[in-house]
């Protein structure tokens, strides 16, 4: 498996700002995170738990929807 750019402790707001491509995935799970003022304070793990999704599976799903890695990414 390639190295992950996502971690369970990343804030939902940071992730959505950096990768707007992931917005549909949140919406498909009927998560209210998109545009929520509290998204800065909740981690991906928090969000998955709240919606009863297994955190590891949720991260894998997000990972699958990430755009191809930029050469400069680190």
């Amino acid at each position: 498996m390639k190295s992950s750019r996502l971690s369970p402790q990343m804030s939902v707001a940071d992730v959505l700002e950096r990768w707007p491509e992931l917005i549909p995935t949140f919406l498909e799970h009927r998560m209210a995170c998109v545009g929520c003022s509290m998204a800065a304070f909740e981690t991906l793990q928090d969000a998955a738990r709240i919606y009863g999704i297994h955190p590891v599976r949720f991260l894998e799903e997000l990972e699958a929807h990430l755009p191809p890695e930029e050469p400069s990414g680190g």
Binding site: A32, M38, E42, I50
Partner: peptide, 8 residues
């Protein structure tokens, strides 16, 4: 706010 999602 202990449970932000709950308040939202």
């Amino acid at each position: 706010v202990r449970f932000p999602h709950g308040l939202v």
